[in-house]
């Protein structure tokens, strides 16, 4: 699990006039109670406000 990146930094674009969201890859999971407080079990999706 050492070199796990939760998403590819390059996206394959197949056409214009489209939006692309990178696909998430499973790497690590948060500790359960922390996950509830944070609002997700995936640390790479946590976006702290303020």
């Amino acid at each position: 699990m050492a070199d796990c990146t939760p998403f590819d930094k390059t996206i394959t674009v197949t056409k214009l006039a489209q939006a692309y969201v990178p696909i998430q890859k499973l790497c690590t999971l948060m500790e359960p109670t922390q996950a509830l407080l944070a609002g997700t079990v995936f640390p790479e999706l946590v976006d702290i406000y303020k």
């Binding site: 998430q24 499973l26 359960p32 109670t33 996950a35 509830l36 079990v41 995936f42």
Partner: peptide, 16 residues
């Protein structure tokens, strides 16, 4: 806590 984990994991599994 556990049910929330299951929900978040389940949503992930929907697309994976």
């Amino acid at each position: 806590v556990l049910d929330f984990l299951a929900v978040d994991l389940q949503l992930y599994l929907d697309s994976h």
